[in-house]
Simulated assay, not measured.
Amino acid sequence: MSAVTQLYIYPIKSVMGIPQHQAQVSFSGLLHDRRYMLIDMEGKFITARQFPALSLVHALPSTTDVLTLTHQQMPESLILRPSSFSDHYLSTQIWGDDVAGRWVDQHADEWFSQLLNTPVKLVFFGDKSARYTSRRPDQPVAFADGYPFLLANEASLGELNRTALEQTDMRQFRPNIVVAADTPFIEDSWHRIRIGTVEFENVKPCVRCVFTTLNPQTAERSPNGEPLRTLSKFRRWEKKGVTFGINLVALNEGIIEQGDKVEVLTWREPEQYQDLR
């Protein structure tokens, strides 16, 4: 039997995750997950892939939708209040998708520009923002890379760490939902699952990038290129890349929480991988 052990939201794309005991599921993702994004002066999205310092920005919710941001390099915190944001929307691009993002304000731009030492703007996924997933174009998604939910399995992490040159922390994969299952990578075979009252569908394996090599405490890259180095030996998915975790869409809305059982409603034929370890 599998069960949920951890839940995370990432209010701003690439910043530190916030653990949740309970989370509200909407079709576009967990409540407050990846509702903000940084863009450059041309409107293209910015992440910790280019600016690792972003991954050490700590977001502390103080009320329902107000965030206080801190970073060890910044002398002052930044408070984000959606009620005071600009009404102006900017044209942005994320993985080829054109999305209208609500501009936050000049103060937020200056705070992040100082942190990253490059001019950037902060945008919010507002009422006029819209984006949909590629394989399921009827399913909305905010500023997450491609799909509204990422699920990872502790047993799969254990199998990765068993033969890796160094130990990988689950936080490096930035999941929304972490489960404890008896079998490594059994999640590949899940088609539809139920957690609490919410049903999810497995759309595809999650292809991983260099972001996973960042230490979640220091933002330094792994000197051994882990976990990508080891994943490339036994989790290479054809020509698409190396995978860990599964991308989900929600089939209804509701509440999920730590300790909820994962009920497998239907199964699927998993992708095939060659183990070259």
Rank of each mutant, 00 (worst) to 15 (best):
I79W: 03
V210M: 13
D138Q: 14
V57S: 05
R131T: 05
I186D: 01
I18N: 06
T92E: 03
H71I: 04
K44T: 12
M16R: 15
F143S: 03
Y89S: 03
I246D: 01
P270W: 05
E220D: 10
L151V: 02
S2R: 06
N153T: 02
I193L: 01
Q272H: 14
D87H: 14
S14D: 09
P75C: 08
T133L: 04
R162T: 09
K128H: 14
A100E: 13
Q20M: 14
R277N: 13
Q50K: 15
S77G: 10
S77D: 10
Y132H: 13
G146Y: 03
S84F: 12
L228E: 06
I79Q: 12
G96P: 09
A155P: 04
S2P: 14
T63S: 15
L150F: 00
H107L: 13
K261T: 15
S77V: 06
S62C: 14
A250F: 03
L38S: 02
L56G: 00
V120Y: 00
A180G: 02
V123N: 04
G126E: 06
W267Q: 12
D40K: 03
V99S: 01
D188P: 03
G96R: 08
G43A: 03
Q114I: 10
F200K: 03
S129I: 02
F234K: 11
L248D: 00
Q50D: 13
G241Y: 07
Q139A: 15
S189N: 10
R277Y: 10
V179T: 08
E154M: 12
S86G: 02
P119A: 07
M37T: 01
D33F: 05
V4E: 03
